[in-house]
């Protein structure tokens, strides 16, 4: 059963927003703010810019919802708003440099060099893994972040991102492979 097969309890909220209801708008941000932030992080790999981009996303939602013809498609539409806003925010020299580093598939710079087998405390390991995730190509980072932050299944990720389930799965497999390789000897 897909998300669209069942009653979408958020649809009345979206319809109310389309009629200019600010209460409904705040409710939608409360319900879905976290995964929107996850999408932004997934695209940017930079937590420091999440707040600014998220603010822009929600402003765009408020201003452009009258362009959404089929309100039942609000979820992929919101995803696309978040994705595009993050892409726009990432269009600068430093972002391109980071992306190039990530695409080179080399070891993540911010992973501190530790001898294999050396015991690190949990906080350090969390930081290392987080940095390694940030260093993934956005293509693979995005479904990985949605899976781990929202606990979404393949089908949910597929519906929101508008890509086939098989593609979601393949990207997750590759993301995990890259992480294992990046973190080899650290975890």
């Amino acid at each position: 059963m897909t998300r669209s097969d069942i009653f979408d309890s958020d649809l009345p909220v979206v319809e109310a927003i389309a009629n200019g209801d600010r209460f409904a708008f705040q409710e939608l941000t409360r319900r879905h703010g976290e995964w929107v932030r996850a999408v932004i992080f997934g695209v940017l790999g930079d937590a420091e810019r999440i707040d600014d981009v998220a603010q822009q996303v929600w402003t765009n939602v408020w201003e452009r919802i009258d362009r959404l013809r089929d309100l039942s498609r609000w979820r992929p539409w919101l995803y696309r708003m978040a994705y595009n806003a993050a892409i726009d925010a990432g269009r600068d020299v430093s972002r391109r440099r980071k992306a190039a580093e990530a695409l080179s598939n080399g070891p993540c710079e911010r992973v501190a060099p530790h001898a294999p087998g050396e015991e690190l405390d949990r906080a350090e390991k969390v930081e290392q893994v987080t940095n390694a995730v940030k260093g993934l190509p956005a293509l693979y980072r995005e479904p990985f972040v949605l899976r781990h932050l929202q606990g979404w299944g393949y089908r949910e990720i597929s519906e929101v991102m508008g890509i086939p389930v098989d593609t979601v799965e393949t990207r997750l497999v590759r993301a995990r492979r890259m992480l294992r390789e990046k973190l080899n000897g650290h975890i």
Partner: peptide, 27 residues
């Protein structure tokens, strides 16, 4: 190893995403 990475990633990403939760300001 993958399970361990997943677990640590869940913790780390949670901190990244929810560290600051600014209220949404409408125009």
């Amino acid at each position: 190893k993958s399970r361990r990475i997943d677990e640590l990633a869940g913790v780390g990403l949670g901190v990244q995403i929810t560290a600051t939760t600014e209220p949404v300001e409408l125009p």
